[in-house]
């Protein structure tokens, strides 16, 4: 990992995107166990239908986890000061999730040089998460 420097980045720069293969029921079952989010709406088709959905839907936090992975693929985790995730649409079985992010602000606070990123997770149909992260760089 070559860590970017504060000086090397400018507003508008995109960070390396992360493309995830289509979401499967198996992935959702694994995430159900790994995360502890046992809401049946993510893994039980009968339950999802009783809640008025056509099929199970992915956990929002699964895609938030992918967004965070895009960051830890880019900088050491210790550089991450905050990540805010707003879930804006559902992710369905078979959707491929793509994570992207770009620098929207450079600023200093305390002794730290910080960049603010706007990020999003999206499927072919919709933007599923609007996110923001603050990263400290040397």
């Amino acid at each position: 990992m070559t860590v970017p420097t504060f000086e090397s980045l400018k507003v508008g720069d995109e960070i390396p995107a992360l493309k995830i293969p289509p979401v499967s029921r198996h992935t959702l079952a694994l995430y159900c166990g790994a995360s502890g989010d046992h809401n049946p709406i993510h893994v039980d088709l009968d339950y999802a239908k009783s809640a008025g959905l056509d099929d199970v839907i992915a956990h929002g936090m699964l895609s938030a986890g992918y967004l965070a992975r895009m960051l830890t693929d880019w900088v050491p985790q210790s550089a991450i000061r905050s990540i805010n995730n707003r879930f804006t649409a559902m992710t369905h079985i078979g959707d491929s999730v793509t994570c992207t992010g770009k620098v929207v602000e450079k600023f200093e606070k305390g002794n730290e040089k910080l960049v603010r990123l706007e990020m999003q997770a999206h499927t072919p149909e919709a933007q599923t998460i609007i996110a923001e992260a603050v990263i400290a760089l040397e």
Binding site: D37, H38, I41, A51, I80, N84, N85
Partner: peptide, 24 residues
């Protein structure tokens, strides 16, 4: 989640995750 939902007198099927914001 089921305990949170029970406290609030709701059901899981009505629940969606709106935001999750982390400060480290």
């Amino acid at each position: 989640l089921v305990d949170l939902v029970n406290l609030l007198g709701e059901t899981l099927g009505k629940l969606l995750h709106g935001e999750e914001n982390f400060t480290y």
